[in-house]
Design a protein around this nucleic acid. Structure first.
Lengths: 192, 192
DNA sequence: AGTAATCTACTAATTAGTAGATAGTCTGTA
DNA sequence: TACAGACTATCTACTAATTAGTAGATTACT
């Protein structure tokens, strides 16, 4: 299954709809219209909706891991790592009021099949683990200050970002997400 | 339109489904089975799905405002207010892995009609305003410490709770929400 | 010749919502 | 008190649209 142009277009269009409207408000019919193809042809590339859904999330997760790796290698300072990390969420938000794909799917979680649930859990776990490492290093380096377990703080921080994206989109005010990030900077950064 | 028993049962059942599975994964057909009535009878009480949805959110919002008022009058200490506030979210979470109704609807936001959107925005606004007042008072009283604008911190805190509910439910681990709340306590509480 | 990608045409289920009939209940009045 | 009319809640039976998915033919590339 080499990724043809149509195959990629289907993944792109599906991801787009899921990020904005959620998994249940996305259909083969609508996708067919968007891509300019028949629903039967979509079934040729992705036998079922769950197959397509799984591949959308898997691709998103793998790409995001690439970004995490890039940030880690390019920044030495944990504070800078965190800035770049947050910038990814702001960028998603500002590209048409999109929500993090997996944040969206976390809401739809109860309606998802197990293969997609697994991918979403992986995404959350990988992000929280990455954040925990950055936060912990930052504390050891003396740039961050907090009492809690770094893993717990990572969950808390990640939850804030996912929640703030929903909040910002609803009020059509992207500055809300940015202010939220600014708040966190103030809460954990050691004054210089 | 005095609220009859059936009327209330419909609101209860609808709220239940929306909190667990979202607005789009809820139908008159399923609701009819749950309540033991025909779909046509549901239309008698609520002409359209949007009418039912609006009333579910309105009732939820009004009830929640009652809780906020109760907390404010019963607690003098802002730290205690915040504890009681968080306890509401933990209780929701622990009653069958429910998500805050409006947190759920914030995800579905793009697919909602304006009458329901308005209610969800009101809920968020009222909560954030209430929290901002508590946080600000706590800082003036010397029980909380933070640099940011109290309103911004309120948005940040509220976003964390909404996000953490999704996170906790997904990992089937309610302690995640509690640990998140514990983290926040550590971040803003002045040591005694 | 074989394979990949597409199509038309279909199925069976589910969706929100409507039409119109049938009970049961409440109220005002003779 | 008894009855007439109105109202409330429910039902069965339907419509039109949308859903995911299938069967089988056709086109086009290799």
């Amino acid at each position: 299954m080499p990724p043809t142009a149509t195959y990629e277009k289907l993944l792109d269009a599906a991801q787009d709809v899921i990020q904005v409207r959620g998994f249940n408000a996305f259909s083969y019919g609508q996708l067919a219209t968007t891509v300019g193809i028949s629903t039967a042809s979509i079934h040729h590339h992705f036998p079922t909706k769950n197959d397509l859904g799984e591949e959308v999330v898997r691709r998103y997760r793998v790409r995001f891991n690439g970004v995490l790796e890039k940030i880690r290698t390019e920044c030495s300072n944990p504070a800078e790592c965190l800035e770049r990390y947050c910038a990814e969420f702001v960028a998603t938000m500002e590209s048409g009021g999109r929500i993090c794909l997996c944040g969206m799917l976390a809401s739809d979680y109860e309606t998802l099949p197990e293969n997609i649930r697994r991918e979403v859990r992986l995404f959350f776990g990988e992000n929280e683990e990455w954040l925990a490492a950055i936060l912990d290093k930052g504390r050891r380096d003396g740039v961050f200050r907090f009492e809690a377990d770094a893993s717990d703080l990572a969950i808390t921080f990640f939850s804030t970002l996912e929640g703030a994206m929903l909040d910002s989109r609803m009020f059509e005010d992207h500055s809300r997400l940015r202010r939220t990030i600014e708040c966190w900077r103030g809460l954990i950064t050691v004054a210089v």
